[in-house]
Simulated assay, not measured.
Amino acid sequence: MENISLLLSEALAPYQASLGPVGTHGERLVTVRNTAGATVIEHVFFAAQLCDRRQLTDVVDGLHRDLMVAEGRIEPCVIAAMRNATQVAAFATTRAFV
């Protein structure tokens, strides 16, 4: 798991990521700190999310999104609108084949 902490820190640079101890259900607390050492994000992930390469990619993408929100570079309502637009487009595509 130390390697995962290093990978997360590398992917989220200049932020520093660290993993907390394993919880009772296998969950791990991921803490992301800025260069001053202040905690920016704390989020709990299951071990499976951190061990599987595809799920780890999703974790990094989610943390990138959360960092953009924390930095004020994107509003949460923009994320919701983007998700909604994707769902509507996917629904329209599947309805066209019915």
Score class of each variant (00 low, 15 high):
72 G>T: 08
38 A>D: 14
24 T>W: 04
20 G>W: 06
27 E>G: 14
6 L>H: 10
35 T>Q: 15
79 I>D: 11
52 D>N: 09
96 A>R: 12
59 V>A: 02
97 F>E: 12
50 L>V: 00
98 V>R: 12
18 S>N: 08
69 V>Q: 05
75 E>T: 11
7 L>F: 05
34 N>D: 15
15 Y>D: 07
81 A>F: 09
57 T>K: 06
18 S>Y: 02
12 L>M: 02
61 D>M: 07
95 R>W: 06
62 G>P: 02
68 M>K: 12
76 P>L: 11
80 A>V: 14
8 L>W: 05
49 Q>N: 09
84 N>M: 15
36 A>S: 13
87 Q>V: 11
54 R>C: 01
40 V>R: 10
21 P>T: 11
19 L>E: 06
63 L>F: 02
57 T>E: 06
31 T>S: 13
24 T>R: 12
22 V>T: 14
26 G>P: 05
22 V>M: 14
20 G>K: 08
40 V>N: 02
75 E>R: 15
14 P>N: 06
79 I>H: 12
37 G>V: 08
15 Y>L: 06
24 T>M: 11
42 E>V: 02
16 Q>N: 10
9 S>M: 04
56 L>T: 02
60 V>P: 03
55 Q>H: 04
46 F>D: 10
41 I>L: 14
6 L>A: 11
64 H>T: 03
35 T>E: 15
72 G>Q: 07
44 V>G: 01
98 V>T: 10
41 I>H: 05
45 F>E: 07
20 G>P: 07
63 L>D: 02
75 E>I: 06
55 Q>T: 00
39 T>K: 12
30 V>S: 00
58 D>E: 05
86 T>L: 12
24 T>A: 15
30 V>K: 00
79 I>V: 15
9 S>Y: 03
56 L>V: 01
57 T>V: 04
